[in-house]
């Protein structure tokens, strides 16, 4: 999946001269946390809710000139080196960039022009959907040897049983030389499937959270 599939295309932006007070209103009004700063159609910086809060006076110690801050322009506090993404970047790359640089969002540039933004919640949402339930289904975990062909062997059993797989994930396991295949299968009764898998010698991991193996 690429960024263009999940980015938000309607981006709220400010100019370098926008005041800190106006910028705060925009954040609150739109319930967002990042404002790209544009000069014409060129991206020149970004301000986050944290940058703005850092600029505000203490809420505990009031001074007469506190409101002066609100009149200053965002160019005084914006970050000028902006980490960006391209619409054709892969989502996993954006996730890694956000994670590595500890930023909350990536403005998306195409030909130098701002075309969208992705935030850490967009990326998380994407993961939630990936692991989530998009159809009524049961989960089966199969522990297999870590070698070529195991996935085909297991899915051959699914075909034999006539059961549709809605999603699957491969995860490593603590046991060396093995991996876990996690399937979402579209059936309420997994018994025939489990029996067939065991017949073929596969190790099906049961819902053992309660401490007993079924």
């Amino acid at each position: 999946m690429r960024i263009e599939e999940i980015m938000r295309r309607r981006v709220v932006t400010v100019a370098a001269e926008t005041t800190i007070g106006d910028a705060l209103q925009l954040l609150r009004g739109n319930r967002i946390r990042h404002l790209p700063v544009l000069a014409g159609d060129k991206l020149v910086g970004i301000v986050s809710d944290r940058d703005l809060r850092d600029a505000l006076p203490s809420s505990l110690l009031a001074h007469d000139d506190d409101s002066e801050v609100l009149k200053k322009s965002v160019s005084a506090i914006m970050k000028r080196e902006v980490i960006t993404a391209h619409p054709l970047d892969f989502i996993q790359d954006a996730a890694k960039t956000i994670y590595d640089y500890k930023v909350g969002s990536l403005p998306v540039l195409e030909g130098g022009r701002l075309v969208g933004i992705v935030t850490e919640s967009d990326i998380l949402n994407c993961l939630v959907e990936l692991f989530g339930v998009n159809r009524p289904s049961s989960v089966l975990e199969v522990k297999v040897e870590d070698r070529a062909g195991t996935l085909a062997e297991v899915s051959g059993v699914f075909r034999e049983a006539g059961v549709n797989v809605c999603s699957m994930v491969i995860t490593p396991t603590a046991e060396p030389g093995h991996k876990i295949l996690l399937f979402r299968v579209q059936t309420i009764d997994t018994r025939p499937l489990v029996a067939k898998l065991r017949e073929h010698g596969f190790h099906v991991v049961a819902p053992t959270e309660g401490g007993v193996q079924s």
Partner: peptide, 9 residues
């Protein structure tokens, strides 16, 4: 819980 059991929701 739907962690394993149908329908998952």
């Amino acid at each position: 819980t739907g962690k394993f059991l149908f329908p998952g929701t």
